[in-house]
Design a protein around this nucleic acid. Structure first.
Lengths: 153, 153
DNA sequence: GCAACTTTGTTGGATCATCCCACGATCACG
DNA sequence: CGTGATCGTGGGATGATCCAACAAAGTTGC
């Protein structure tokens, strides 16, 4: 029997490159989160928007997009979808008629809490090989990298 | 003057979620690598293929795809592009007429070494806030997560 | 040796996330 | 008042990933 890992092992150049490790683990993370949310009949970006609304209160579409790193254009479809499911409400801003004020509904808050549970399970599966301390280390290191590249932009 | 970070701060639910930190940092990493390679008139996947060929020697398109996690379909266009630039050669396998044997050329090896330098610069910029020890920690943790999810697939 | 299954390269298309541009409406400021 | 910026919206480009189907060629079991 031939060693099955022989022709599936990635080049060491890649396995030693942080950016490769990041994009590869992110691909797994993204797939697992998407599948987890799909099982709850939700999409990944639902969580982003609901979380932002829950934490910071009602906001315009543009402000919401800035928080979550989503383009204004793409916010439209996302909010359409969430509004169709009555998870948030889109109302015109009386003090600025260009804006819509997006507000999370009670059903949206409930859905957010449900997605919290789903997401916690996915993190557990994603980080299975790491203990609690290592998970904290990883999150801390990534957060520092992320903060560094979010500065001034 | 209003605090400009006030409406750009991401929800804490996201900043505390490892999968979010992974996908976000990976987005930055991917963008920086793409830009770095574009400046060298190369694409991100060029490096993958050249690295695999340099380390493991000539291989069929399918074997190459398995190593680098690239679909057979997508290998075709990638190899076309690299073959057009004479960075690798595609020759029929005499012992199995279904297969093509892909071989890196001297120009391909030179290009790989040039891309090594580009990539090293990008890693430096990407991981700027971390010292050498922390970079090792991060790479080690990500590699363990990655290995865990690559098992048996 | 022959039928059934698998592998390989290739084409074509689907999906998804991200990004950019242009438009009309509205607002802010000189 | 008029110039420039912002907002929601629509349209489209891009790039990465994935899947289906196909013919040609190999492999396996009977």
């Amino acid at each position: 029997m031939v060693d099955e890992t022989a022709d599936s092992a990635a080049p060491s150049r890649l396995m030693n490159t942080p950016s490769w490790l990041m994009t590869q683990t992110a691909t797994h993370a993204h797939r697992m989160v998407s599948e987890g949310f799909a099982a709850a009949e939700a999409r990944a970006y639902h969580y982003r928007l609901l979380a932002a609304l829950e934490e910071f209160g009602p906001a315009s579409q543009a402000a919401l997009g800035r928080r979550c790193g989503v383009d204004r254009s793409d916010m439209v479809a996302m909010i359409n979808e969430l509004a169709d499911r009555r998870l948030l409400e889109r109302a015109p801003d009386p003090s600025d008629r260009r804006r819509n004020i997006i507000t999370i509904t009670p059903a949206g808050s409930r859905q957010l809490r449900r997605l919290d549970d789903v997401l916690a399970e996915v993190q557990e599966e994603l980080l299975a090989p790491l203990d609690a301390g290592e998970r904290g280390q990883l999150a801390g290191l990534l957060a520092r990298v992320l903060r560094h590249h979010q500065r001034g932009q």
